[in-house]
Every structure is written in structure tokens, then in C-alpha cells.
Amino acid sequence: MKEPKRLKRMDNYRFHFRKLTSLFMFTLCGVSVLIALVPLILIFYRTVAFGFSAINWDFFTQMPKPVGESGGGLANAIVGTMILVGLGSCMSLPVGIMAGIYLAEYGNNWFGQSVRFLTDVLNGVPSIVTGVVAYTVVVLPMKHFSAYAGGVALGILMIPTITRTTEEILKTVPHSLREAALALGIPRWKTSLQIVLRTAMSGVVTGILLAVARAAGETAPLLFTALNNRFWNTSMNQPMASLTVFIYNYAVSPFDDWIAQAWAGTFVLMTLILLLSLTVRFATRNKFAGNLL
């Protein structure tokens, strides 16, 4: 009777070992969540700590001061970012929304499938590459940097986001709604526009906001398209300042004043992003959480 007893003890041992391994591995998973939260918290902390002290009313209303003079603000950069994102939206909204409608309403064929695929692929193309394309298409022929070029770069960037979110959200509209409209004799195009699109409007707007937020935070494609401008400028044909490019230029500069303003700009940018993602989160109530990344 000795043998079985030892076996039983072995079994017990292995059972506990397996239990412990399980516990250990799941603890590691929890730890990795904590590790991922560390940079997030640190980034928020630094941005608030450095940015909030540097921010004041002048930051939003004054122009950049020359080197050596303290004070001043980035009013032109803030307006510039708005103009550039507006230009990008003008270009990407029609394309993105219409293509999204096509994919959702008629896209169940090889053409729709390949557009969907390419849109996803385009989404993964680095933003700096779209900047290079805007440079070769707009800057080289015009022979100077301009807001148009920056708008084109941002527009290309925004198209995939808008297309895919529009499609996803239109697809969540129940089929019965479409059928009801069609049964009443409403033409299909009116159904798409006035029933389906209108039902999903808040979702579509959310997608647009997301694309706008992303575009407003982009730096790389603007570096050599819209360039930068230290002066007030609303002409599309001239180089244009943007908040992100200013942050970049100021952050790598040797002047404490400029570095402080870079942090202030970072703070403004982060506030914007945080507000937008909270809006998105509450507007969609976790319905489309996965596809809004």
C-alpha cells in the first residue's frame, strides 16, 4: 500500500504546482497592465505639471516673440492648426463619407472588399510618407511651402479613418429600418441618406471628430509641407504655423522660455485629445469601442 500513497502525494504536488503557475502567470498579466499604465500616468503628470504653469491667457492671444524677449503666445499656431485641419477636412470628408456609404450599402462585392482592404492598408501608411507625397504633388510644382500642401497631407491621413468609421457605424443601423423605408416606396438613395445616415449621424460625427483629433496632433506631415511661420498668416498660399510643429521647434530649442511654451502647447494638445476621447467614449457608450482605435 506504499506505492499509491506516494503517487497521491506526487499528484497533490503537481496539482499545487499547476495552481501556482496559473496564479503566477495571471499575476504577471495584471503586472503588465500596471506597467503599461506607468507611462500614461507619467506623461499626464508631466504635461500638467510643466504645461499648466506655463499656460496663460497670452498663450492663446499673443504672437510668438523674438528670441530673448519673454512672454508671447502661439495664437497664430492655434489658428494655423485650425485652418490646416479645416483644409484637410474639406478634402477628406466628402471622400470618406461617400466611400463609407458605398462600402456599407453596396460594398458586398470584390470591388468593395478591395477598397476596404486598401483603406485599412492606407491607414497603416506612416504619416510622414503622406507628407512626402504632398511635397512632391504640391510643393515641388509650386516651388514653395504652403498651407495647401499641409492640407493635402492631412486630408490623405484623415480619409481612411473617416471611411472605416462611417462604414462600421452605418452597418450598425438595423436592416429592418432600411426595409421599412423601401417598403414605403422610398428610393434606395433617399433611404441611404435620410434614414440610414440620419440614424447613424451621431456615430458618423464621432468618427469625424476622431479623425480631426488625430490630424490636429500630427506633426510629421506638416514639417515640410506647411512648414512653419512666426507671423500672422491666413493666406493658404503661404507657409503656415501649426501648434505641433511649434511644439517640436520649441522643444528642441535651447531657450527655457520656448521650452516652457512647448510644454504649454503639449498641455493644450493633450486636453483637446482627452476631451475628444471622453466625448467619443460617452457618445458611443462602448458600442464601437473596438473600431475607434
Binding site: I43, G217, T219, I247, Y248, A262, T266, M270, I273
Partner: peptide
């Protein structure tokens, strides 16, 4: 949220 933070903010930080 980590995905939403702009690249330039990571850069500055």
C-alpha cells in the same frame, strides 16, 4: 488613451 496621445507628445516627454 495611450493610442490617442499624439506622437509629438511622446517625443517631448
Amino acid at each position: 488613451m495611450l493610442a490617442g496621445i499624439p506622437s509629438i507628445v511622446y517625443g517631448v516627454w
